[in-house]
Structures are given as structure tokens and as C-alpha cells.
Amino acid sequence: MQRSKIEATFRYLLLSFVAFTALVPAYIMFSGSFKSQGEFLNSPFGLPKSLNFGGYQSAWTDNFPNWLTNSFLIVTGAVVLTEILAALAAWGFARFPFKGRETILGIMVSLMVVPPVVLLIPLFQLGVELTLISTLRLVILIYVGLMLPFSIYMLTNFFKSIPESILESASIDGASSWRTFRSIVLPLSGAPLATLAVVNLLWAWNELLLALVFLQNNEKKTLMVGITGFQSRYSLDIPTVMAGMSIATLPLVIAYLFGQRFFIAGLTAGSTKGE
């Protein structure tokens, strides 16, 4: 009894220390965005003495609203397109046995780990030739391409788990495969589709490398590219930097708080096959 009490105390000490370490940077960012430069430098850990919105005001100038809009447009476009294409393809893989299906799926899975920097050079050169640099279209297309392998893989696994009997009763009723897909499969797939959307949203919102290369025009940048440049521009005004960071983080934190279940389901989906 005694031993288990000591153990429990150790457990809580460890968890509290780790949770503290995990949360402190976010706290420094949010609290820092309301401080003055001097206050931030002298007491980074203290609560702001008064709420100073100057940082938000200067962060919200010039192209910031543009960047935010671009991020929203790119993320929405890419996530929706990926969802549609991946669902169609996954149904093809899950429902119709054909020669080489396993091999193709295997290659698909392996594409998930191709470093994006490998794709960068040829796609950039092509983008220049087609004058698509600094257009949201090209970035959306590239994001869709990069998100598809995992998305197809995840949905295929889910579709395969739908009981055969449900699908067979539909085909006996004479429903075409399109109708089976639309009126039976999709309604059953709410949770995995939501999970996928959340995971892809997280990835696309946070992506930096491709956005940096393909969106060079200042008005066309995404939020991540924009705030990366913030640091050097406002190096003498840290509250402004922190305010910019806070705005960029907020949509994610909200998504996280409400959709934590989906985040967790999505991130564990890749590891649980074959068990």
C-alpha cells in the first residue's frame, strides 16, 4: 500500500513536470503577445501587467489578413478535394479485387515517406514554365497529391471493414455501385472522413517548405510563410511577433479542443493495421 502511494506521487510529479514543459511555450507566446517589449524581456514568465493590444494592431497590418485568407482558401480547397478523390479511390481499392491491388496499395503507402524536398525542384521548374508560381491553384494541387496516399490508405482500411452483408443486400436490390457508395458507404463513413479532414487540415495549415517556394508574391503567401518572415522584420518588437504567432495558432487550438477525438483517431490510424 505504502509503495503504491509513493509510486502514485512520482507519477503525478512526472506528469505535472512534462505537462508544464509542454504548456509553457504556448503560455509565453499568448501572455507575451499582450506585453510591452521591455516587460517581455524582463519577465517572460509573469502575467502581463495590463492587456496591451499594440502587438495585435501592428501584426494585423499590411498583408496579414491576406495571408490568413490564403491559408483558409488553400486548406479548404486541398482538404475537400483530397476527401473526394481519396474516398472514390479507396472505394475502388476496397470493393473491386483486381490483379496487383496489394502491390499498388503497398506502393501508395510507401509514397507517404517521400521527402517533399525531392519533389520541389521539378515541380518548381514546371510551375515556372506554366506561369503558375504564386498561384493558389498549384499549391492546392501539390498538397492534394501529397495528402492522397495516406488518405486513400486510411479510407481503404475503413471501407474494407464494412460488413459484406450490408453491401450485398444493396447489390441484390439492384443498386449500382455508385448508388451503394453514395447511399450506404458514405453515410457510414462520417467518423473516418472527419478524422481524415482533421489530420489533413493540421498538415496543410502547418506546411512551410512548399508554400515558401511556390508562393513568392507577398500577397499570395500563406500564414506560415508570412509569420516566418515576421521574426526578422519585427526582431525589435517581440510582442508583435508573439501576437502574429498567436493568431496563426488560434484556429488550430480551437480545432484541437473540439476535435481531439478525431486528431487522436487519425494519428493512430496509420499504425494499427494488421492487428
Binding site: 511555450p25 495549415w205 512551410l208 496563426a248
Partner: peptide, 29 residues
Amino acid sequence: YRSAIFLPYVLPIPVVAVVFGQIYQLHGA
């Protein structure tokens, strides 16, 4: 505890990098 420990994984890397850049300054937090 689970939510707290998982939170860093959700935050954007550019944001994390900038904030840690400040924390790790010579006169930083």
C-alpha cells in the same frame, strides 16, 4: 495530462520554432 502532452504536436512548427528561438536567446526565458 494527455491533452497537455499532446498539444505540442498540434502546434505549427514555424510558430514553435519562433517561440523557442525567443526562449533560447542569451537573455531569454
